[in-house]
Amino acid sequence: MYEWDFTAVIENSGLLWQGLLGTLAITGTALAFGLPLGLMLALSRLSPRKWLAWPAGFIIEFFRTTPPLVQLFWFFFALPILMDIQMTPYLAAAITFSIQSSAFFAEVFRAGIVSIERGQWEAARAIGMQRPQAMRRIILPQAVKRMIPAFTERSIELMKTTTLVATVSYADLLYQANELAQKTFRPIEVFTVTALIYFTVIFGLSLCVQAVERRLAVSGDSTVR
């Protein structure tokens, strides 16, 4: 029978906290860039101009269809050679997850925008609005409200995916856990605690999402996936 011993984990809990901060930092960075970029991609993809819609569609589909770990390795190992820049684990992770999440956010934006009834477009045009005005003033404010659950769900997915940065030595929670496990020879306790930390944070966020969804459902507003 294995004897569990958490003292090593508790004594070194500072490392894990730092790791959690690292996870939150990379998630935050990816959100900060991914959301606006996703909106731009969605608007481009919906544009009547083919030269805008086509490349946007390709970027979205490519980054949704290839594994994020391949993307991360590409940006970490290949991009610095092409661009002649100093690549750090943080920069590679930031680039990868900003673009990768923007591709997914773009589809959320698009689903929200196309879910708005045609009549709203027509009413906006009938009072003389041009397409960009109608999009900004009438369509997007309504669409964003419907997208909130899908957004939060995507953000949670993003946080889970950021664990991949551990493979390029960015000090996120998983990376710190791995270091700690090797240092203390207590992998069971370390990885179990790490899994529980992730579970607590992510499950907590999921509960918030469900609460928001229920509130939206009560107010009679539909949501998009």
Partner: peptide, 8 residues
Amino acid sequence: RNTPVLVQ
């Protein structure tokens, strides 16, 4: 569902 697959 609520833990990262890489952690698992």
